[in-house]
Amino acid sequence: MKITISDLVKTYPGQARRATDDVSLEIADGEFLVLVGPSGCGKTTLLRMVAGLETPDSGTIHIGDRDVTGVAARHRGISMVFQSYAIFPHMKVRDNIGFGLAMRKVDPAEIRRRVDQAAELLQLTEVLDRHPAQLSGGQRQRVAVARAVVVDSGVLLMDEPLSNLDALLRLQFRAELKKIVREIGTTTLYVTHDQAEAMSLGDRVAVMRDGRIAQLGPPLEVYDAPSDQFVGGFLGSPPMNFVPGPALGHASDVLIGVRAEKVAVGTERADDARPATVEVVEPTGASMLLTVLIDGHRLKVSAPPTFTATPEQQIWLRFDPTSLRFYDPETGLALLR
């Protein structure tokens, strides 16, 4: 189901700032769209308005061709995975997963069949007759996802579903989640504050800031060509470097953005390279992350893992002109290239 969000404005009572400030967004049928941004940027508010758990002050939400702006959550034909999982502790796993079907008065034999199927998909078959208290955190997470996919709704909403898992589990389940969502093909709106999660999961990524969408596009496009300084600084690890133009031999009225891995690092002097002083050397295993000073400006660059450098050493950096992005130093917005 297509989701169309038009001009959504929401201000929470007692707050001066708008939680979402005139947001418009269209999510295509079957698309996986990730809302990402720092806490307080309005991404969860936006998701909750689509779910019907918050009422917008103005603007409309359409699911398919139906205007659902004033429709109660239970009549929107959506399913959702909550950040805290919101598994019901007094029900067995089986009844938790089948809750949505039971509420829709599906025939019990059919519920059983579909719950078994969903449990198999999420490897929960063994624990179907247990209570949630007897499950691990990862299993509870799976129950929450199973409960959401079993109803086979047109829209799947996920509110930071992986944020309560430990790092290793999060990485494992992330790939699994992507596979499951692709298999069921549901239109998915996914909220996260984790930029790596956003990059890896989304067909498109919407980076939000202060209640507005700062940039919307495929992950690599957003990563490669951030529309403003904020997006470049938020997406990617390490974040994009920003240095004033003169430091790299450009005009003084531009700010240059460059990704750490787009800088070629060498120890030999070269005509097209610029000297820099190594400040910190951090081996990450896959690469050598260097913090360097160039003309008094701090930069993070990544060198091959075999690269050896010591602090205070002088190295030479070569910048590929096609990988440089130019920004207005006043507004932080991208300049036309």
Binding site: S79, A86, M103, V151
Partner: peptide, 18 residues
């Protein structure tokens, strides 16, 4: 009782009373 539990119930088709 977490509010999210109630919201989850409503998202999955329960009326507020239910």
């Amino acid at each position: 009782v977490p509010r999210e539990h109630e919201e989850a119930a409503q998202v999955f088709g329960a009326s507020p009373a239910r």
